[in-house]
Nucleic acid binder design. Structure first.
Lengths: 138, 138
DNA sequence: GTAACTGCAAACACTTTGCGAAGCA
DNA sequence: TGCTTCGCAAAGTGTTTGCAGTTAC
């Protein structure tokens, strides 16, 4: 469940290139299953296992990042740089926020000596414009 | 997956009282399974389904809150008030942080008009003192 | 009395993994 | 050739749910 310390040699792979390409163009924070469906367009024989394996590999390589949500499956992001996200609690879509990344959160606050903080995750939760509009009319 | 709009009448229940009691004394952010084991001490016949059902009910009642982690099962918290948490990426323990809750994150920033922000989650990730010490010696 | 709640077990959603075959270096 | 990656299918993990019986009010 934690990363291992033995790192294998990474080979070129048609499937990983495809997935990396899909992620590079994609700002929609797709789920593994959505990426699976997108890759099947060009590579109909690709398997879910391969998609999951390659997504995890790309995360470890630092090319993409994995976003865990309080509901539903993980989403993936072609992170150019650290930033924060918004989750619509109704349609479960994920959006980028314009909030600036706060480096000061990565240093241990006063009473937390001994803790080594390596990063942080901030997620805004609420209703996207579309769902907020729909909800108004109920 | 989202909450419904029909709210049923809530009855008293031995099992829910037990779970609520366990949570009130507990500042360890236990997982559902840990709560299940704790409740079996006093109520050996309790079932996992009942524990999950009651935890979700207590969350909906606002008595506890559910913490989703980037790894492993959800944790539960007897939230006196909003606060933030730290996750050790090695032992997966969850700790309270002394950071102040930032209300300003609950208003839509500049370019997010139309979004209705209802709350936010902030999680620090890193190594707890114990795991940081262990890691040093490797 | 009736509707919420229970224990049980099966189902569910999402993800990982073991295997033998295929492909990259 | 040797080790990585593949597709497939089965297994794993965490959680929800249908059902028949029980309990609260």
């Amino acid at each position: 469940m934690t990363g291992g310390m033995i790192s294998l040699k990474i080979r070129n792979s048609q499937q990983r290139n495809l997935i990396a390409g899909i992620m590079k163009d994609n700002y929609d924070h797709p789920t593994a299953d959505e990426i699976y469906e997108l890759s099947r367009i060009k590579e109909p024989a690709i398997s879910r296992g391969t998609v999951y394996r390659n997504l995890n590999q790309l995360v470890e390589m630092g090319e993409i990042s994995k976003l865990t949500m309080p509901v539903g499956p993980d989403h993936f992001d072609c992170r150019e740089q650290n930033h924060y996200h918004f989750l619509c609690r109704k349609c479960h879509k994920v959006f980028d926020t314009p909030l600036e990344y706060d480096d000061s959160l990565n240093v241990a606050p006063g009473s937390m000596e001994g803790f080594r903080i390596e990063g942080h995750r901030l997620l805004l939760v609420g209703l996207c414009p579309q769902c907020a509009g729909i909800e108004k009319n109920n």
